[in-house]
Structure formats: structure tokens, C-alpha cells
Design a protein around this nucleic acid. Sequence first.
DNA 1: TTGTATGCGTTATCAA
DNA 2: TTGATAACGCATACAA
Lengths: 330, 330
Amino acid sequence: MATISEVAERAGVSTATVSRALNGKDSVDPALAGRVLAAADELGYRPNGPARNLRKQETAVLALIISDVENPFFTAISRGVEDVAHDAGYSVVLCNSDDDPDKEREYVEVALQERVAGVLLSPAGRGDSAEKLRAHDTPVVAIDRPLPRSGGDTVLVDTRLAAREATLHLAEQGYRRLGCLTGPEGVPTADDRLAGYRDGLRAAGLDSGELVRRSDFKATGAAEAAHSLLAERQPPDAILVANNAMAVSVLAALDELGMRPGRDVGVVAFDDAPWTVLIDPPLSVVAQPAYDMGATAAQLLLGRIGGDHTETTVTTLSAHLVPRGSSRSG
Amino acid sequence: MATISEVAERAGVSTATVSRALNGKDSVDPALAGRVLAAADELGYRPNGPARNLRKQETAVLALIISDVENPFFTAISRGVEDVAHDAGYSVVLCNSDDDPDKEREYVEVALQERVAGVLLSPAGRGDSAEKLRAHDTPVVAIDRPLPRSGGDTVLVDTRLAAREATLHLAEQGYRRLGCLTGPEGVPTADDRLAGYRDGLRAAGLDSGELVRRSDFKATGAAEAAHSLLAERQPPDAILVANNAMAVSVLAALDELGMRPGRDVGVVAFDDAPWTVLIDPPLSVVAQPAYDMGATAAQLLLGRIGGDHTETTVTTLSAHLVPRGSSRSG
DNA sequence: TTGTATGCGTTATCAA
DNA sequence: TTGATAACGCATACAA
């Protein structure tokens, strides 16, 4: 592939002039600039990214480390990130941690090596990924989940409050034995939603004992958990489900047991999705502003990259309950 | 951030030895290697990716250019790509073209500049992105859609055949006025599914006139198209829908009109999804092996990057019809 | 086995 | 305004 010196030779100027012309510096004679552009075009010249990055000691790349691109929630986040990044001339490297701290560490290493401009991280566990990044002066913004030892910019949803609200909603609708299906221990959103569920129980004056199951935030694992929950000697008459994929399993389990959402068992699930209104009755959800989270986090990160050294911020966006038929008793 | 020469100084050796030790060359004294590793560790040394890439004239990065990460079909592809790439030590840069040839061109430029090792491309239109890449010796594998002027490795689904099969299935179930809702003109998958639909009509001896609508492969645009289709003077009694997002709109439209899938209007949609079995009746689908497509394409691409110069291949994976209640007449 | 020296392709500094 | 040159950090050819 053509290099800058080939372009220089062809245009009959120095490499310095080529560089200036190509980067649109104004201190270059229009005639020469024209010759340079023509030569570059003829040779199909493309500036060498790595060389430029090495020289400038910076790259226009962001890393986005999330647990699963197949989860529509993270997908929406990634879309928000990508749109903002793209507008600012940045590319986004997508990394699936699968909520595995080792994989997360691995990706952080790659991010460090490649000298990415910044990292958007949805921390998998109690690891120190963020500290490691900051120790090497790589800006980090935590997204969806707080950092274990905090301190960095963070974009969250008030998920505990939303879980509390959803739980109270179920209680108000007349359900009495409220269960909860949440994600793995150690994943902040999973724990927060469980905590919010307990908040709600307390506020409603209910005590279900512990009608709680954990699963991996995915449909397959959740199927077993859902069945186990419904097989309790005194099964729940309503369930708060901590994400969308698990909700599918809960609804499938209810169907297998011949139970109807809303009438037999109230259901509220986190994350809205287009299909939730197609089922009968429609699924009540806690809608999270995923796209905005991604966009906000990306903006924040770009600000830091741009040299913003003001105090770190915690942005908490609101989730809101969308009550539908699946949580309407009777 | 620490450089190789700082490590060299600390370990009391030359940079060459550090480089060799860190890259696990066997021609280095174990004692020295130990000192080097220790020094690197103490300094928190991370090799500088751009410098290494520049020197080695290669990067361990793949670009994946698809139309929309929010489409579960592409999400599954990207997962397949990522898993394979990660195992081989490669990172994946995700690019949303939004089916916009200009955006695609832009991303191709970035891929070229950054000297990515290879590109996985789901071509947006009739552009020459693939040729441009190949002209600069960047391996390309087309995925889900053939390249306009072909010639490169390609991983496809026999989508036209599948559409034909789905159409015939509807005819066999007794539906007589078959409609089709497909994607934008120029997008090969959209056109192929339409062609398959026509194949099916012909094979079944039906002629619906043209009960065809096009939309943008997304839910919002499809809503209008669905309504328009159902508002025909002689509306279809069955619809083949070219993807999952549009299916949501069709089902919603039917619901609004008080029509029941299967009984009133037969529906078959491309792409399976967890929720399709939750609705009543369950949605008949054409299931595509998206994950495998991604994995296969990535493997192919890595092969080319590794120097495989055998003839280019076209891999066609099979989609299969999953008949459910929404296409069972009466 | 180790060290010295060079070059990868750019940008930026300095003189002209 | 332009050009010669150095430097970014690393891997390797070559010499020792």
C-alpha cells in the first residue's frame, strides 16, 4: 500500500508537505496542495493508522466491554455508544465479557495494549479492571453497573428503586406472595433488583419468606429457576423478573403449567421489548433507557478523552414501570 | 506508560533481549528472561500495540460491518464472529452501516486506514466496498448477502429457497391470497425473499397479483406497510414477512384489526426468536443459522489472513421452516 | 545467547 | 510556505 513518501515523490514535494496538505493545514500553497491530493488519489493512498497512532500517541478507538451482545438491553446501549462515537470520528471495539471476570480482565489488557482512547465498562464482578485502566491513564466510564471501588464516571439506572416500585405495584394489585427471579450474585444489577424487591416487600408489609431464585440472566438457565420457583410448596402468586430473557422462560413455564399471567400469577419483568405487547395479556415491564445510557456514557467518555478533568460524575437515569395486563389481578 | 527501553534499563539488558523474552523466544537465558519479566511486571509494562502493529505490518483486528446491531439476527452473527475471533486472539470492531452505502464506504475507509487484518461485510447495496478492500489486499468475507460483483468468499443462507418453501407451506395450508412484506429494494436478502415468494406462488399455481410491500427491515417502517397491505380491497389471507422486527408490526396490525394469526391471516416470518412461542398462536418462522454464519465467516476470514490462497468459496447454509400455529389454517 | 542498529510511516520541530 | 530531520515503540537482521 502506498506510503506518504511515494505520494511526496509523485507530487514532487517533501513528506512534510504531503502530511500538511492531507491534514488540511492552512499553511500550504493551494497549488501544491492540489498536486498532493491528486497524487494521493492516483496512488490510492490511505494514511497508515498504526503509524499515525504511534506518532500521535493516541487512537480514535473506544472499547465497549459488556456481558452479552445478544441481550437487547446491551445491544441498545451499544447502539447509543456507536452513534455518538461515530459522530465524533471514533470507532468502537465490542467485547463480550459473558460476565466472566477473567474475560473482562483479558479485554482490559487488550484495550491497554492497543492504547484505546477510552473504555466503557459494564463491570462483571468485584474485579479491579477500572483501577488498572486508570492506573495507565485510560479514561473509563462505568455503564449500567457501578464500579466495585467506585471513583469513576458512572451511568446508571435507579434499578433498585424501579424494582421496589414494581414490587409495590404487584402488592397494590392484590398479589400477596411475591417472588423474585434475579441474576447472578455479585452482578450489581442483579443484587440491586433483589434489594429493591425486598424494599418493596417491606414497604408493602409483606413477607414472603424467601421466594427468590438466581439464574444467569439468560433464558436457558432461567427456565429451571422458574420451574423451581413455581414448584414451591407455597408458590408465589406474582414474580418480579430481573430481565427480559429470563421473562421468556417464566412465561413459558407458566404456559406449560397451564397458568395465565395476570390471572394466576402476576408478572413484571425488566426491559421492554417490541414483542411484550403481542402476548396475551401483554407483559408489564420496567423500561430502561438503554440507548440513552450508551449515548450519555459515550459523551462523558469523549469529554474525558478531550481533557475534561472536572470531578467524576454519577449519572442516574430513571427506569419507569409500564403496567400492562400481566400484573393486573383477576 | 512504560516502554520497552525502560524495562531494558531496569533489567540491565538490551531492548532486543526484552523483546525476545517478552515474546517467549527460546533463545534467551532463563535467568535473564526472569529478570525481564520481573522488571516488566514492576513497571506495569504493556507492549504498545500501535508500535508493534506498525513494525509487524499487521494488526489483530477484524472489522464487522453489518446493518444493525439491534437486529437479533445480526447480533447472533456478531456473537459467532466474536467467539471465533477471540479464540484466535483477534478483536472485533463493530460497525453499523444502517444499510446506508455511504456509511458503509466510510467504515471501509476506516478499516483500510487502521490496516485491520480483515473485514466481514454484509453489503448494503450495489457499492464496490469489497473491491476497494481487495484492491488494498485486505481479505473480505461477505456475510448474509452476496457481493455485488462477487468473486470473494461468501457465507449465505439459501434464503430464496426458504422463502419459496415457506410460501408453498402457506399454500398447502389452504391460504390462497398470499402477500409478502420484504425489505428495501437493492438489499439482496430482501430481493431474494421476494423472489422466493414469487417462486412459491408460481409453484403453487397461485397468482395474487402483487400483494407486496417493502419497508426498511425495522418495526416502525413496517407498521405502515403492514396496514397498507391489509387495507387492500382484496387483502391477503396470508403474509410472508422477511424478518423478525417487521413480523412484530404485522402481528400488532392484525391485533388492531381484530384478526387472529392462523385463523384469519396466515403468517410466516423470517428469523426465529425466543418470544415467538409465547404468543397465541405461536409464530411460524424460517430459522436461520445466524451464529454459525458468523462463526463460519470468521473462520474463513482468519484462514485468508493466515495466507490461504485457495480458490474463493461460497458457503450456503440452510434455513429451515418451523411451522407453528400462525400458519395453520382454521 | 546477547547487543547494536535500522526501519516501519507518520507528525512535529526547527531552519531555511 | 517549505524541507530536512528526529522521534514515537517495537521487532528483527546482523554482528559479536
